[in-house]
Amino acid sequence: MVKNKTRAAYIQQIEELDGLVSRLGEVVVAAVRATGHALGEADEAAARGVVEGRGSADRLHRSVEDSCMGLMLLQQPLAGDLRLVTASFRMESDLARIEEMAVDIAQLAPDVIGKRVPPTITGDLAMLSAQVATMVESAVDAFSRSDADAATAVFPLDNGVDASFGKIRAMIVDNLRSDDSFADVAAELLMIAKYYERMGDHAQQVADWAIFRTTGLYRGRPMGEDSLDQADWSAR
């Protein structure tokens, strides 16, 4: 137990940041799942909920950013705390991109719901959203538990996401060939599928930050190591 008040306050800030990141992860995962529900169940209310929930998610994003910048400015954290703060700062960006794409999907959903879309496509989109949500959830959980093995296990899940995206894309193309009127929704469906596929990439980034927080290595490179050697610079 730390008796010094200033340090105790610092440690409380660190713990609060950890909690904020976990909470942000939960909110983003819920948004992704809600988009899948909206598409799979033709539930426009669920889609509206994602759009309307954007404000509270933004506040959480800003809280994480403010907490990271405040800690760096005023406390100059080191070692495990430094890894938490820098990883949180970067991971927040990835979660923000995922959340923005979830909102974009929610805004596209009314253009799809009620149209003549084969249920196999909306069903597969819902399944794709569940795959992505699981990836994000697992990566955030690995971050919160500082579990590098769990984070590493996230990467292969992206293969499933890519495969699902490929399957949905093929179905959209097939429907376009057989039904001219399908063109009304094809672009929106393809965009939605692509958003999910990109969410998977961001989920991998979150897993990278979970590994960094735990080990100090980002994609195998230690913190503080020059990213470009002299040859890189002279080649520019």
């Binding site: 730390v2 010094n4 954290p77 080191l78 070692a79 430094l82 890894r83 913190m223 503080g224």
Partner: peptide, 22 residues
Amino acid sequence: TTELFSRPKEKQTEDYLTGRFS
């Protein structure tokens, strides 16, 4: 230095660097 301050191996070092000494 970059290694010790970013990923110390010993818990005592980690505790000192992060102000968690009691």
